[in-house]
Design a protein around this nucleic acid. Structure first.
Length: 86
DNA sequence: GGTGAGCGA
């Protein structure tokens, strides 16, 4: 399941994001959005978990919690691509 | 820099 993660401190990277969510289940994908203008984190990212129930638990456990002094927001992500058929 | 939505195989 795809998960949106916002409110991240600009100091975290994909490796840290992965470690955080891996505590609740196996991850299949981790994407931390990097601003190409500055090369730094945009403060949010996406995490895909192998198990849907584990993803729900991760959202419930991590949403509203603090990370490096910042309160993060974790939500379910619908899709990253509109459509790829034609 | 802040409540945010990814762009590559």
């Amino acid at each position: 399941m795809n998960i949106f993660v916002g409110g991240l401190p600009f100091k975290v990277d994909e490796s840290e994001l992965r470690e955080i969510f891996e505590k609740y289940g196996e991850l299949t994908s981790v994407k931390l959005i990097i601003d190409k203008q500055s090369g730094r984190s945009k403060g949010f990212g996406f995490v895909e978990m192998a198990d849907d129930e584990a993803g729900q638990q991760a959202i419930s456990a991590l949403d509203g919690t603090e990370l490096y002094g910042r309160t993060i927001g974790v939500r379910v992500s619908e899709d990253k691509k509109p459509d790829k058929r034609y």
